[in-house]
């Protein structure tokens, strides 16, 4: 029987927790399920040196597969932005439902098709935290001119309400925040933030709204995919889907653990939520930017509309189920 070895380039370093575990998990499953007929060799960022070159390398066939996040490619293909997580967008469960039942997958393939690639959901971080701030944000005024490390579309939303998004090399983030060169840093969630030590230098940890369900992606070169027999394709699909699910529960677990550590060892850290005035301004900014993105871009307009419709329908149910339940829990001791 013919065996296949797929080379996978991931955006992360070799032992980046949670993200890196997702690819390892995927590779192990594929090999086991296929009884060794399909192997995946993972090359991490330290090997290929191109964390943000994964799109190009898979497209060109230098790698058969990639593991990354769709919104990183926004500068190359603007429509890729929508397949990771949008501000005020869907939760992980809602978004998966959109992908697999609400037409999300079809839209995503439509965007990746011209680049000879297939994209699959590749693991969710859950709600990302809103970032570490060195001073409390009480009014919109406090955000004016605030220097914050916040990249991408999310950064544009922040910029709309007066924040100064700032680029800082990852290696200098800690020093920059510690010395007040910048005022705030957005990263991921407790489990990964803890490693960078922000809890030692910033007291205010804001809750998230800008990336409510960051979904990573598996990219597969189309030619490579088509060469695989149908059973191996199915094994890939299942392994990618379980890897994605596993990452969400892994994130939930690791974040809960890390948060317990922060609460215990760093009592200086206070959880904060932006006041209503700020949320409203962010929401309006987000709507404005989405309208701009949809203008003159038929494909983007369709994706945005699909997401909006799906969110409305899905959220109405989330409200009477999950939210109602969580509210119930606050009623009792």
């Amino acid at each position: 029987q013919e065996t296949f070895t797929l080379r996978l380039a991931e955006t992360w370093g070799p032992n980046f927790p949670i993200f890196g575990d997702t690819t390892k998990n995927f590779a192990e499953r594929v090999e086991k399920m296929s009884d060794g007929r399909l192997k995946v060799r993972i090359d991490s960022a330290n090997k290929h040196k191109a964390p943000l070159g994964v799109f190009d390398m898979v497209k060109a066939g230098q790698y058969d597969m990639g593991h990354s996040a769709s919104y990183y490619w926004k500068g190359k293909v603007p429509e890729t932005l929508f397949f990771t997580s949008m501000p005020f967008g869907m939760t992980a469960v809602e978004q998966w439902a959109w992908f697999y039942h609400g037409g999300g997958m079809e839209l995503m393939q439509e965007v990746y098709e011209p680049h000879n690639m297939l994209s699959f959901p590749g693991g969710n971080t859950g709600v990302q935290m809103g970032g570490w701030f060195r001073k409390e944000i009480k009014t919109l005024e406090d955000l004016q001119g605030l220097k914050m490390r916040i990249p991408g579309f999310q950064g544009e939303v922040f910029a709309e309400v007066g924040v100064n998004p700032t680029n800082i090399a990852p290696g200098e983030l800690y020093t920059a925040l510690e010395r007040n060169t910048i005022d705030a840093v957005e990263w991921v969630g407790p489990a990964l933030d803890l490693r960078l030590g922000f809890q030692q230098i910033a007291d205010y940890y804001y809750t998230g709204w800008h990336e409510p369900a960051t979904e990573l992606q598996f990219l597969v070169n189309k030619k490579v995919w088509e060469k695989l027999p149908a059973d191996l394709q199915e094994i890939m699909r299942i392994a990618m889907r379980t890897a994605s699910y596993d990452m969400l529960i892994h994130s939930q677990h690791a974040n809960a653990e890390a948060w317990a550590t922060i609460k215990e060892k760093h009592p200086n850290v206070q959880i904060k939520q932006f006041p209503k005035e700020i949320f409203q301004a962010m929401y309006d900014a987000n709507e404005k930017l989405l309208a701009e993105a949809a203008e003159g871009n038929e494909q983007a307009a369709r994706i945005i509309e699909s997401q909006e419709n799906y969110l409305n329908q899905s959220r109405a149910y989330t409200d009477i189920s999950t939210r109602a339940y969580l509210n119930t829990m606050t009623e009792v001791e």
């Binding site: 500068g75 990249p151 991408g152 950064g155 910029a159 998004p165």
Partner: peptide, 10 residues
Amino acid sequence: MGEGSADPGG
């Protein structure tokens, strides 16, 4: 691809 920066104001 008409590639540009993915960051705000890039």
